[in-house]
Design a protein around this nucleic acid. Structure first.
Lengths: 221, 221
DNA sequence: GATACCACTGACCGATTGGAAAATAAAAAT
DNA sequence: ATTTTTATTTTCCAATCGGTCAGTGGTATC
C-alpha cells in the first residue's frame, strides 16, 4: 500500500511553480535532441542537462531517472504528432480517400521535418529488443498502424493503391517520408537533396503520392 | 617523418599468425553487431570484446583505437556488399534494365537481411554531423549513389520508372529495402511482418519492383 | 634448442557515467 | 513575518569508460 491518504485528508497540494515547468520543458527538448542523435545508451544525463542549460541532478528531481525522462520525452513527440495529424485529417471528408492520403503524407512529412526525432527515436530503439521498444510499440506505433493499415486496404479495393500487403505498403510509405527525413544529413552530402527546404519536401510529398497512390479517385457523384 | 626505413633495410616482417586473424575477425563481427545496435557513442570497447570472447586491450592492439575499429568494421560490410552486388549485376545484360533493377533490389534486400548493419550503421551516423559520416559518404555512399542514380534516370526515359527526381527515387527505393529491414524488430510487433522469412522478403522485393518500376520493358528486338 | 618477434594477459590510469544525499535558495501559504 | 513546501545547487559515490603499459606465453625463424 502506498502512503497516499485516501479521499479524506488529501493534502491541498501546493501548485507547481512556473520555473519548474520551464525547466522540465527545457530538459524534455534537450532529451529529444540528444536521444535521437546518440540513442539511449549513447546519451549521458549530463549531456542532456548541459544542452538544457541546467544542473544534471535536476533530471532525477523532475523525472526520477534517465529511463523515465526518455519515456516522457518520447511521449511528448508522439502525442504532439498525433494532435497535428488528427487536426489535419479531420478537415478532410471521409468520402475522399485520396485527399486523406495526401494529407497524411503531408502532415507526416512536415512534422518530421520540424521534429526528425519522430522517426529517429524509433530507429534507435528498433535495433535490438528492449522494454523501451515494447513500450513504444504498444503506446504509439501499433495504434497508428492499426488505423492507417485498414485505410490503405480500403484504397486498394477502389484501385488507388497498388495490390500487395497493406502492412508492407504502409511501412514503405512511412520510411519514404520519415526515413528519408531522418537521413537528411546524408542526403545532403550524397544526393544534393535538402529536405530542410520547402520545395524539396513538397517534391517528395508529390512523389510519394504518385508512386504509392497512382490510381485515380473514382467519381464521387 | 616516420621511422619507416626506406626501401633498403626493410625488415623481413614475419607473417601474421593465424590466431591473430581469427581474433581480428571475431572483433570485427562483434563490433558490427554492437555498433549497429547502440551506435558509436553507445558502444563500449569492453562490450565489443566481450561479444567477441576476447580481452579488451586486444582492440587497441589490433586496431589502434575504437574509431579505427569502427572504420574497419564498416569498411568490411560495405566492401562485402559491393562484391555481392557486382557479382549479381554482372550476370544481367545491360540491355535489360528492368532485370537490372530487380537484381539490384533483390541483392540489396538479401544482403540487408543477412547483415542489417548495412543500413543501421548509416542511420546511426546520419543523426548528426561527424567525421565518421563524412568518411562513410565519401568512401561508400556517394560512389553507390553516383552509379545507381544515372541508371534510374535512364529507366525514367524509357518509361519504366515514374517521373520525378531520380535522387529522391533512388533513396526512396533504398529505404524501402534497407530501412524496412533495419526496422524488422518493430515490424514484427506492429505489423506482423517477419522479414527474416524468405517469403516475406520476396513479397517485399516484388512490391518494391511493382511500385517503383511499374513500366513495361520495351521490346528488345 | 636458442632467439626474436608476435599475440595475449592483468593491472592500472584519469575521465566520465547514473544516481543519491545534504545543504541552500526561492516561492507560496499561513 | 514566519513557516512550510518546492526548486535548485553543491558535493559525493561506486561503476564504467577509452586507453596505456609492463610482463607473460606462444610461434616462427635461425
Amino acid at each position: 500500500m502506498e502512503a497516499q491518504t485516501a479521499d479524506v485528508a488529501r493534502k491541498p497540494a501546493r501548485k507547481q511553480q512556473q520555473r519548474s515547468i520551464v525547466t522540465q520543458q527545457k530538459l524534455l527538448d534537450a532529451a529529444i535532441e540528444a536521444f535521437s542523435e546518440n540513442g539511449f545508451k549513447g546519451t549521458s544525463t549530463r549531456d542532456i542537462a548541459e544542452r538544457a542549460g541546467v544542473h544534471h541532478p535536476l533530471i532525477t528531481y523532475h523525472f526520477k531517472n534517465k529511463e523515465q525522462l526518455w519515456r516522457e520525452a518520447t511521449d511528448r513527440i508522439f502525442r504532439e504528432f498525433n494532435v497535428s495529424l488528427v487536426k489535419a485529417m479531420d478537415e478532410i471528408p471521409d468520402i475522399d480517400p485520396k485527399a486523406k492520403a495526401e494529407t497524411f503524407v503531408g502532415t507526416y512529412l512536415h512534422y518530421s521535418r520540424s521534429q526528425p526525432a519522430l522517426h529517429r527515436i524509433i530507429l534507435q530503439e528498433a535495433n535490438c529488443p528492449s522494454e523501451r521498444l515494447d513500450w513504444l510499440v504498444e503506446h504509439h506505433l501499433r495504434p497508428l498502424y492499426d488505423e492507417v493499415h485498414t485505410a490503405i486496404a480500403g484504397m486498394q479495393q477502389i484501385g488507388i493503391v497498388p495490390a500487395g500487403s497493406p502492412a508492407l505498403l504502409f511501412n514503405m510509405i512511412r520510411v519514404c517520408a520519415g526515413g528519408l527525413v531522418a537521413l537528411k544529413l546524408e542526403l545532403k552530402q550524397t544526393s544534393d537533396i535538402d529536405l530542410d527546404s520547402d520545395e524539396q519536401i513538397a517534391e517528395l510529398a508529390d512523389l510519394i503520392i504518385r508512386v504509392f497512390f497512382p490510381g485515380e479517385q473514382p467519381s464521387l457523384g
